[in-house]
Amino acid sequence: MKNRRGRALFLLLIAIGLLCAVTVAGGLLAGSAEFADFSRKNLPPCLAFPFGTDRMGRDMLARALAGLSLSIRIGAFTAVISGAVALLLGTASALLGGPVDAAISWVIDLVMGVPHILLIILISIACGKGTFGVVAGVALTHWPSLARLLRGEVLQLKQAPYIQMARRLGASWGRVLWGHFLPHLLPQFLTGMILQFPHAILHEASVTFLGFGLPPDQPAIGVILEESMAYLSTGRWWLALFPGLSLALTVALFALLGERLRLLLSPVRSQE
């Protein structure tokens, strides 16, 4: 039987490489994504333009890659911010307890009570829509589940007999944090953050699609798909199919990445 753990790590590296390649390629292609040539407009997919061209003769492959690159960068940025918020509020809630804990738990319930998409729209409006609006919206809505998870972990650790023992035996808080809390929390935190990527990317695209996110002059996937709506009934299927498909693939890669990482880092499940 082949070694599964080795295979999982190999897949992880491929996924990371692929995502990096898309990010870089999309960044480099930003120019050609904007390049309009009316002599080649509305071309269905062919060898020169595998994703076809749109009404202004723009290469849809370049546009899709540029859009993905934008999505990944925004996804990474927002996931890191919401991860930091989650870490801060989750551990503060568990360590400080009392009214702080009650207040943070209440805010978590509050944020979870409004569907993400609606809350992102509200935050985006508060920030005047646009790139800043959607980034703030996505970053400020995705932290509660991770914060709740980390809070639970820290609470459990705080009660754990071996932590109490370490404290009684004279270990400083710093030593306990470094030696016991960190090894427990770091895998949870990292996988939790990576698993936020897919949600963040999807929500950014959704909100942009609805018109509350990235401005129409950006080659974002949400913008591309919103434009494609107008050409659905005229049969230009490639405008919607390929950009959406590539977004789904990117998100799936991130989801797989997080899932694999979780399995590898979890002591119980890594035996499977």
Partner: peptide, 18 residues
């Protein structure tokens, strides 16, 4: 589940519509 949760729901709607 992986495929569906990675698919933007509005894009799925577009596909079904198409």
């Amino acid at each position: 589940c992986l495929v569906i949760s990675s698919t933007p729901s509005f894009w799925l709607a577009l596909l079904l519509l198409m």
